[in-house]
Simulated scan of single mutants.
Amino acid sequence: MSLDDEADELRRQLAADRTVVGADGNSGNVVLTELRGMIVGGLLQELAARLAPGPAFGPGPHGEALAALVTELSGEILDQTFVGRQ
């Protein structure tokens, strides 16, 4: 599977994602502390930079779609933290 195919598949999975509420009424979603959210968001930004064309990944565009998806996810996470509220 190519990186573009992987990005497309992950986008399909994310589009189908929903809030999970258990029988007890509690959300089944994972809750991160603000610090953990900032760390995960920062790591996703680093991954996106390494997948994008350039010195880390090479000149080919093969990682662009996956880098774009990872950038979007990092934004979603960081927007819920102090970093995103600046």
Rank of each mutant, 00 (worst) to 15 (best):
M1V: 01
M1C: 00
M1D: 03
L3W: 06
L3N: 02
D4W: 00
D5Q: 08
D5H: 03
E6Y: 02
E6F: 01
D8A: 09
E9S: 08
E9I: 05
E9Y: 08
E9H: 11
E9D: 11
Q13V: 00
Q13S: 04
L14Q: 04
L14Y: 03
A15K: 10
A15T: 11
A16G: 10
A16M: 07
D17T: 04
D17C: 01
R18V: 10
T19D: 04
V20G: 00
V20L: 07
V20I: 11
V20E: 07
V21E: 07
V21P: 02
G22H: 08
A23M: 07
N26T: 06
S27E: 03
G28A: 05
G28H: 04
G28F: 04
V30G: 01
V30P: 01
V30F: 09
V31H: 12
V31R: 09
V31L: 10
V31I: 11
L32Q: 08
L32R: 11
L32Y: 14
R36V: 14
G37C: 12
M38S: 10
I39W: 08
I39V: 15
I39E: 09
V40W: 13
V40D: 12
G41H: 11
G42W: 14
G42I: 14
G42A: 12
L43Q: 15
L44R: 12
E46H: 15
E46T: 15
L47A: 15
L47I: 15
L47P: 03
R50P: 09
R50K: 15
L51K: 11
L51C: 14
A52C: 07
A52T: 15
P53I: 06
P53L: 03
P53T: 10
A56W: 13
F57P: 05
G58C: 10
P59K: 12
P61R: 05
P61G: 02
H62L: 02
E64D: 11
A65H: 01
L66W: 05
A67D: 13
A67G: 13
A67E: 14
A67C: 12
V70I: 15
V70A: 12
T71S: 13
E72I: 00
E72R: 02
E72G: 00
L73A: 13
S74T: 08
S74D: 05
S74Y: 08
E76N: 02
I77V: 13
L78P: 11
L78M: 13
T81W: 01
T81A: 04
T81E: 08
F82D: 10
F82N: 07
F82A: 09
F82Q: 05
V83A: 09
Q86E: 03
